[in-house]
Nucleic acid binder design. Structure first.
Lengths: 379, 379
DNA sequence: CCGACTAAGTTCAAGCATTGAACGAATGAG
DNA sequence: CTCATTCGTTCAATGCTTGAACTTAGTCGG
């Protein structure tokens, strides 16, 4: 650690706060100085290389009130972009976003990936990525899969058995030439609610149901993954110690009572949209199936809240679609069990992001890293 | 934020790493330079004020091999000390430690505090603190209570009802003239395993049973408290959604199956030492009571592990006393339910700290703050 | 006993990011 | 046209770490 390094760290830290302020919203040097607490002099200095490297652009001018007009800075419309990609059981999806978080291109293609080989999956996702990437420089790609991931390797993915043990990040990187970050879809859906916009605060849990139930846990503005990537496995929280046997070997896992497959079976439906229609039509069997699932989920979430103590739960994915009919059962079961409930109710909300939450999170993983490690922008 | 502040931050950060290295073990300037990555010049510079202020002392010399002998630095034996204090249902305890973590004085006095008023409790604990503090300067006091705490105020403490709502930190501070940090005993028992020595890694959960069951959660080398102090409430993790009604209003909480009161009742014993003797004598009723509790605890811990994904569980307090007889049931139930268990077994250990774990943690809270904010040492 | 050797600790000029103040630039108000 | 106002730049000053040179205090071999 040389002396230069120490001062360089200070500079990089300031660069990070400036970029964070810009992600929040564009602003002139003077405005950014006020917002970050740095001086105008430092801002001139810090933004100079960002402008020179095509990361930022200076807008013509703003005809404000008195005084010299300010020239707001924003992310360059031709600047670097990040790719998000999702491999899932029944679809593939990709999306590109700029550093400002705006969506540039997106694709979602239904496809049964259950039996596909790793090569087939990689081939198709690579093709999709090529479709959405244009001439703008690429920061890298985030890749989401439904399962547990550690160090770029797929550790566990019950519904895509051909991917277990595959070094997916490396494999996709070889095919696309991009830097690839691999993560679990639950974590990435949660990240999409945190970055680039705070949609649910700095501490929350995001819950999704597909075949399994996964929770992405955000603590202190950071996604919490656990030491080996197994954190937030809400689906395997036990609600009845001698309950139904689970594929994981345990008994009474939440997943066996609140998983989407269970709800559909109990409701006598095949697909989510059909269930949704039945619910809206007041079908009693469907309503009961959803209420039962909501209660089970509420019990599991109560346990989760007693361990993590966060103020907000976001229901996403299929749960967001069923939100109107789930809410009451989940909330009441949770409230009756959460210890902190005496102080304040746990806020339960539906995700405002649709089916692109996961890919947006995947892309966000890349833009977030670029902002937090600004030296990457000059490579 | 002036320019001076920026450079001061660098200096304070380096001071912190030097002090951390010294907490680990004493060492000469050259040795510390090697361990911290700083230069000998910087070390001379940083340690000078620490020596001048009586925080460190220079040992005479060490007659090592060749070359100029080194003069190791260590914390001054007359330097500042921290007080830890514990208010509990059936006892009060205090302990003083130096910055190196060595115990100086300790007291543990049995006393039924259930019906005591806040004033009575504060009076007695103040008296104990006076008994153990000598001429050495005081950094402050850590205060532990069995219950939930937030911002120096007691939020919830089922077994010491007279303390709810009391601004305990402020009250004790007024009586003793010390800076007081208030925290939950579960968090502090966990901290005692993290600071000043890593006894269980940087990620673990420490579990204690008294009347209730509490877990102190350590993630990434930091105690995780949740947004309102309610994190780690393992006692209210649900293991049977329609199980026994709990005082908290929920049903099937772990506490109702694995709490110490339950174990004693089932075993037909009044006190822990009597239970322990019965177990050692092979009393079947006692053995079964403990095994049942172990299984229930294992189910709850399995759920906890599926959410936090830490590699180690430390059993402390009464559970440490019963460890030999609890271990098997806890471990097997946990292993069959933890998803990450396929990769590695969760390590289950008994706390090596005895009944002073909580007060040591309370004192550690203060020494840790002093090291992390070294500017406090020059006041 | 002396000189070579080794390692610890100190001294000092150099380097560098931020700062605050002074300055130049660009516009509106009167 | 002049003044007020705000934006952005320039520049000397600050203060911390650094690496190299230097001093100090021992061991080792003859």
């Amino acid at each position: 650690m040389t002396t230069v390094d120490h001062l360089r760290q200070v500079r990089l830290g300031n660069l990070r706060t400036v970029l964070l302020a810009l992600v929040d919203r564009p602003g002139s040097r003077a405005d950014l100085a006020a917002r970050t607490g740095l001086t105008k002099a430092t801002l001139s200095n810090l933004t100079e290389p960002l402008l020179a490297n095509g990361i930022l652009v200076e807008e013509p001018a703003t005809l404000a009130g008195m005084g010299r007009p300010s020239k707001p800075l924003r992310f360059h419309p031709g600047g670097p972009v990040a790719v998000g990609a999702e491999i899932n059981v029944s679809h593939l999806a990709v999306e590109t976003i700029g550093l400002d978080g705006e969506t540039l291109e997106r694709r979602l293609v239904p496809a049964d990936m259950r039996k596909a080989t790793a090569d087939e999956v990689l081939g198709r996702i690579t093709e999709l990525i090529r479709e959405v990437t244009g001439p703008r420089p690429l920061l890298g790609a985030g890749l989401a899969i439904p399962g547990v991931v550690h160090d770029g390797v797929v550790i566990r993915t019950p519904n895509l058995p051909n991917l277990v043990g595959v070094r997916l990040a490396e494999a996709l990187s070889r095919r696309t030439g991009l830097d690839v970050l691999l993560d679990n879809e639950a974590n990435l859906a949660a990240l999409a609610h945190l970055w680039p916009r705070h949609l649910a605060g700095e501490d929350f849990v995001h819950v999704t149901a597909d075949v399994g139930i996964g929770a992405g846990v955000v603590l202190n503005g950071e996604v919490y993954r656990g030491v080996s990537g197994f954190a937030g496995e809400l689906g395997h929280v036990v609600i009845e110690r001698n309950g139904v046997l689970c594929t994981c070997g345990s008994r009474g896992c939440v997943e066996r009572y609140a998983g989407l497959d269970v709800i559909l079976r109990e409701a006598g439906r095949r697909r989510l949209d059909s269930l949704r229609k039945a619910l809206d039509a007041g079908d009693p069997k469907a309503l009961e199936a959803v209420r039962n699932a909501g209660e089970a989920l509420g019990v599991g979430l109560g346990t989760l809240m007693n361990l993590f103590d966060v103020p907000t739960v976001v229901l996403g994915g299929s749960y967001a679609v069923l939100y109107d009919h789930l809410r009451e059962a989940v909330q009441s079961e949770m409230d009756s069990r959460v210890l902190a409930g005496g102080e304040r109710h746990t806020r339960l909300i539906a995700s405002p992001l649709g089916e692109f939450a996961v890919v947006r999170g995947a892309a966000g993983l890349v833009t977030r890293r670029a902002v937090q490690q600004p030296e990457r922008l000059f490579a």
